[in-house]
């Protein structure tokens, strides 16, 4: 019964429950945030309220453009709740892919069969990519569907670009988690690395936007690389997307080489 990409297929089918769960979470986030835009973000009172807030705070929360549909979607969905859910999903899958599998003792038996370690890493990384892409597609379609009813006025091309960046950013956390899991054989180090990429990226963006003195922090923030120019409003920075995906690819290569070299399950 030889089959094509057996580890990839298994990783996908084994995680359909969690994929569905995260998809439902993202759907709920879209359905809660976007339909209320006409009554919140779009109203002049809201803009007055935002203007009354300290400028540092609105910048930290990316609420400076919240009065427009694209700005609201960027700040609430792609920049905050969606980013949080996607990063969590991606990190948990990434950390489990090699580190978690090894820690639970399952990887030993898999490797005793006719697979290479590089194959294990790359098929599971591919499964991670596909799941992140599926969740991103769900978000893309929901925003597209709510675009008219919620009066968001988002350009479809810009939405697509923003979704690609959204996916690339989450994937980076996931591949960092996969890489550190593969380096150490421990799930917890993978989770720590993946969470660090997401949290540090977010914090460096929030702090870096406060003043030009700390503006250099923005250069270290993957979050800023992706969202610095508000892609929902202005279209994607494709260079940033390529860069994010390139780093993810490099992390996967490191993971594969590390796993190939070391002892498993000790």
């Amino acid at each position: 019964m030889p089959s094509y990409l057996p580890l990839f297929t298994k990783a996908l089918t084994d995680s359909w429950r969690s994929t569905l769960g995260w998809a439902l979470g993202l759907t709920a986030a879209c359905m809660l945030y976007l339909p209320i835009f006409p009554s919140i973000g779009g109203s002049s009172q809201m803009q007055d309220l935002i203007n009354a807030l300290p400028a540092g705070m609105t910048k930290a929360l990316n609420y400076d453009q919240i009065a427009t549909g694209p700005g609201y979607t960027q700040a609430t969905l792609f920049g905050l709740i969606g980013f949080l859910l996607m990063s969590m999903a991606s990190v948990s899958w990434g950390a489990g892919a090699v580190g978690g599998d090894e820690e639970s003792g399952l990887l030993e038996l898999t490797l005793a069969h006719s697979v290479t370690r590089i194959q294990v890493v790359w098929e599971r990384a591919l499964a991670l990519l596909v799941r992140v892409a599926v969740l991103s597609a769900v978000v893309f379609l929901l925003v597209l569907g709510l675009n008219g009813p919620s009066q968001l006025k988002i350009d479809v091309g810009h939405l697509f670009g923003a979704t690609v960046l959204f996916a690339s950013l989450a994937l980076l956390s996931g591949t960092a988690a996969l890489c550190f899991g593969a380096l150490t054989g421990r799930k917890v180090y993978g989770i720590a690395a993946g969470a660090a990429v997401a949290v540090i990226g977010y914090v460096f963006n929030a702090v870096g936007r406060q003043s030009p003195d700390v503006g250099w922090l923005l250069n270290l923030s993957p979050y800023h690389w992706a969202y610095g120019n508000s892609p929902v409003a202005n279209g994607a920075d494709w260079g940033a997307a390529t860069g994010l995906l390139g780093i993810s690819a490099a992390l996967i290569v490191i993971a594969a080489l590390a796993l190939k070299r070391r002892d498993v399950g000790v």
Partner: peptide, 17 residues
């Protein structure tokens, strides 16, 4: 992989999903 296909292995501590 070609070699491991010719081997059957039972680990001492068997973990199953």
């Amino acid at each position: 992989t070609a070699l491991r296909r010719r081997i059957g292995y039972l680990p001492g501590e068997l973990h199953l999903e």
